[in-house]
Design a protein around this nucleic acid. Sequence first.
DNA 1: TGCGGCCGAATGAACGTTCAATTGGAAGTG
DNA 2: CACTTCCAATTGAACGTTCATTCGGCCGCA
Lengths: 196, 196
Amino acid sequence: MNVQLEVENVSEKKTAILVNMLELIEEHGLLGVPISLLAKKAGVAAGTIYHYFESKDAIILELFNNVREAITHEIFRMKDRSKDNYSERFKSLWVNLFQYFVENPRVLSFMEQFFSSPFQRMIHSKESQFYEDNFSSFFLLGIKEGYIKKYDIHIISSIFMGGLTIAAKKHNNGYHTFSKDELKDMASIVWDGFKI
Amino acid sequence: MNVQLEVENVSEKKTAILVNMLELIEEHGLLGVPISLLAKKAGVAAGTIYHYFESKDAIILELFNNVREAITHEIFRMKDRSKDNYSERFKSLWVNLFQYFVENPRVLSFMEQFFSSPFQRMIHSKESQFYEDNFSSFFLLGIKEGYIKKYDIHIISSIFMGGLTIAAKKHNNGYHTFSKDELKDMASIVWDGFKI
DNA sequence: TGCGGCCGAATGAACGTTCAATTGGAAGTG
DNA sequence: CACTTCCAATTGAACGTTCATTCGGCCGCA
């Protein structure tokens, strides 16, 4: 249930700072977490935070990089199930990513806030499109092998991710609980829009 | 190009506060706008802001309500073009709303930040789904008259709005400039996913 | 003269960040 | 092994700044 942010050779305190920052951002907003509160929740002194990070902004930026890697890792894990045909892989990728965001609501909340905030301008445009970087090869394969229509990768990824994130947010906020069947339906709708 | 936030019988100063808040939020983030800066940019004294609003939060909440109404108004305007058939109306609704967000980037930025932030919890769930409130009757009509498949309104609106907002954000941030043809393509993809 | 709109200096709390002091363990020395 | 040296890790009080909010008073119109 918890996001795996730990990296080898990284101190426990640093990890605690990042993990608790992720939690507090969901509760207080990306720009609404005081260092004093983070220090208390992470069980460290304020000074310790500045031993590991240059500034508050640096915490958020590093958190972004870690979360991005965690999602990348998750997606690679999913891709292993390559026995199915393309259509099934497309749809199960959609459903699995939805479920990942439901199991890790703080990750979704953080990413959504990050990409809507001024921080979004602080990363290279290539990095900011990490969603695509991880999916593009899969979509490009689908185009090359004639399974999906030939659209710009931005078009495909926008539609793929858009419905996914909005639905997952609704689910996490309790506005609508999506059933397994509804998820399959949504994945099929997206698929039907692209398939040849 | 500017959002129409003005309401009858509302003082010019109050309008100036709201309009400049909208601009500053795009630049500094939803929680990153100091009252002192807002006062300077709006050309009023800090005390004046507290003459019109109970607190900083109240400004953001009222801004949300105003922007919501502005979008509602815009959508009603679009709906007038009811001479076309359902398929064309569906697609032009999508394209027009995209263009509205491109012409009013601050509105999109504000709404995205608002719905990702803790403020989202401060409004009734019914209100927070204002997107649907405005679209639902159109989608329900499509279902009733047999143009689109019978899905829950949350499913339809998530997919409809999701690709729209992500693409518009990319467009506004300069990551990808969507051409008129590409917009038509995207609207068709969404339509193809729903049509019977 | 009264009053609502408006001002901006004042207030005190909260903030991000710094730093001198302390700890504890690893490495070096005999 | 005992003892010393050293330095990274850690602390939390202190600092200067910035923040949201208040309030006493001024202005212009009725």
